[in-house]
């Protein structure tokens, strides 16, 4: 069972109250972009054993999208943060570094 704290409600939500939204921080490439960028945007996803960033929606609650940083191996949750950001806040990165020194994920570390 996965428990995530909704950054808008402050409520601890059980997984079935939420809707998964796939990988976080994907940059959209639309019309005019190269075939490679468009393909990467559509299909190329991380599949890490360890630190991962995801999008979730508090679908049965406030209805807001948010981000979660967690470990796919231990199911440990490092933290959740607002959706309105292009990269994880420093506070979240610091929390991950404290527990998984030397971690990296796409361009973040």
């Amino acid at each position: 069972m996965l428990l995530l704290e909704c950054p808008y409600c402050g409520a601890k939500c059980e997984e079935t109250e939420l809707s998964p939204g796939g990988e976080a921080h994907i940059k959209r490439y639309g019309p005019g972009s190269s075939d490679q960028d468009f393909e990467a945007y559509l299909f190329m996803r991380e599949n890490p054993k360890g630190v991962h960033f995801e999008r979730w929606r508090h679908v049965y609650g406030c209805g807001k999208w948010f981000h979660a940083a967690r470990c796919t191996q231990s199911l440990e949750v490092f933290g959740t943060y607002a959706a309105q950001t292009f990269e994880p806040p420093q506070e979240i990165k610091d929390k991950i570094s404290a527990k998984r020194p030397g971690w990296s994920w796409r361009d973040f570390s």
Partner: peptide
């Protein structure tokens, strides 16, 4: 509902699901 009821008290509200319905 998937709520930790120990966190609830008089005067608090939650939106959630009851079995299969919001």
């Amino acid at each position: 509902a998937p709520i930790d009821m120990k966190s609830m008290q008089a005067g608090t509200v939650r939106r959630t699901r009851f079995a299969q319905i919001p």
